[in-house]
Design a protein around this nucleic acid. Structure first.
Lengths: 267, 267
DNA sequence: TAGTGGTCTAGACCACCGT
DNA sequence: CGGTGGTCTAGACCACTAG
């Protein structure tokens, strides 16, 4: 709301008055109109004006609202669609992307069976082992940009693929945003966890970074995954972000890779 | 060369004569003009009309050549730039992407030091252990789409990062395309291997797929990487493609991950 | 100053979707 | 059929680079 009128036009992204050599790299660098529109749309997404799954206004309407041409709105939406924040459907409109209703289940999971595809493997089984509210350790707090000792929700679970326990993982979530999350909520819910976060807590995960290592299974982990202790496992640490680069989840997983592999595309 | 005149306009991507129900999903599906332009530019790249590092004709010139508007050429180039096949530089022109001269060394290597960045680690050391012409085993032949028993070049090498042997890998390349590749060529060349492939063999790697697993170090591998046998290692199998999805390299690497991690971005 | 890519506009028409 | 996104055009102006 409070849409700027007249809308910003060709505004330098850095104040033009700064004398040369104010200490930074300081290229003047103009911010194109469509980037400003993109930012405005992002604000509406973040503010919840349009929620996951919703139809957003048509390009014409947005062009009228922001007082720019349809082409400029189009370019803004193009970039948001490229980032998987919006989904365009010809003839129908543009929708806010969601982890539910999305044909790609587990959009962030890169583990695939060595033979066949995920569908042929049948549905994954999920086994919640724990859901506790604890104080964040130093490294968890740092990753989630919290103060050490702040409350976080820690979830421990095992995922089974093709009838075999394959992934053992711990999740940490900011206690503030995930106030009502309990073991019951998790076990009752069918569908991707990120879809639950969207519908119940208004937190949409948009992007993530993963760090992979090969490690030896500890006795405890080995028991959970039904392998001998010392078995090589893929360690996957994931940090997931909402809009505007705010980290909202830390995940530490151990993947069995005897019948599965982590797939990645490079370009 | 033999540019279609008049240029194709709004051509159905599937022959229009096929009676309904020729066995496929069979949506008519039109192919936009800019896709056709994109394909023509791709042909020129593939044919070597413009080589890696070259400046290609300006948008205006291409628009004139193909008899379309500049905006249409622009959209074609946009997609090729998004695929990292072309690089735009404002005020200068559009260039063919290259693995050399590119500020990002090792564009396909996702291994990063746990602390600090790659630059602070100093240059990588490369140690070529072998370069032989051998007959392709069944799996290698299948991956490279060759007949079993056809000649391939097999390279074995160790990469050192920060003074520590960190990556042990085998490469297989089609013998046909890499006729003059020898141990001497490899040891003499400074810079990324893919840059050598470009300049000496005209093979430009454009895209790759990787499959990761956690494995235990064999005694032989352990010796090469200076770790105890049985140490968990990250197994990375890479299939790299040239233009048009032709596989041109199979790589099987073992990565130490005690001081490094494999980084991946999800979105 | 000339040439390049980058942005923005306005308008036309097409393909797809629901009614 | 009307509304949506998708394509294509033509022209104007801006920002960056180099001679």
């Amino acid at each position: 709301m409070t849409i700027e009128r007249p809308p910003a036009r060709r505004v330098p992204s850095a104040p033009a008055d700064a004398p040369a050599g104010s200490g930074g790299v300081g290229a003047p660098a103009f911010s194109p109109l469509y980037q400003q529109i993109k930012a405005l749309i992002l604000q509406s997404l973040q503010a919840g004006e349009w929620r996951p799954g919703d139809l957003i206004p048509s390009e014409q309407e947005l062009a009228a609202r922001y007082k720019v041409s349809q082409g400029t709105v189009r370019k803004a939406i193009d970039e948001l669609a490229a980032d998987n924040l919006l989904v365009r459907r010809q003839g129908k409109g543009t929708f806010v992307a969601t982890h539910a209703e999305q044909h790609v289940q587990y959009r962030f999971l890169r583990l695939h069976p060595d033979h066949g595809d995920r569908a042929s493997e049948g549905p994954a089984t999920r086994d919640i082992l724990a859901c506790r509210r604890v104080r964040a350790s130093a490294d968890v707090a740092a990753a989630l940009q919290l103060r050490a000792g702040e409350t976080v929700v820690q979830v421990t679970r095992v995922l089974g693929l093709g009838g075999v326990p394959t992934i053992l993982e711990d999740l940490w979530l900011p206690g503030q945003a995930f106030r009502g999350l309990t073991m019951d909520t998790l076990t009752a819910y069918a569908g991707p966890m990120y879809a639950l976060f969207e519908s119940e807590f208004g937190v949409r995960m948009v992007r993530a970074e993963e760090r992979l290592k090969a490690v030896a299974a500890s006795p405890a982990a080995a028991a959970r995954l039904a392998v001998p202790a010392g078995t090589p496992l893929l360690s996957v640490e994931r940090l997931a972000y909402t809009y505007n680069g705010v980290p909202m989840e830390l995940r530490r997983g151990l993947y069995r890779t005897d019948r599965h592999h982590y797939r990645n595309e490079l370009s």
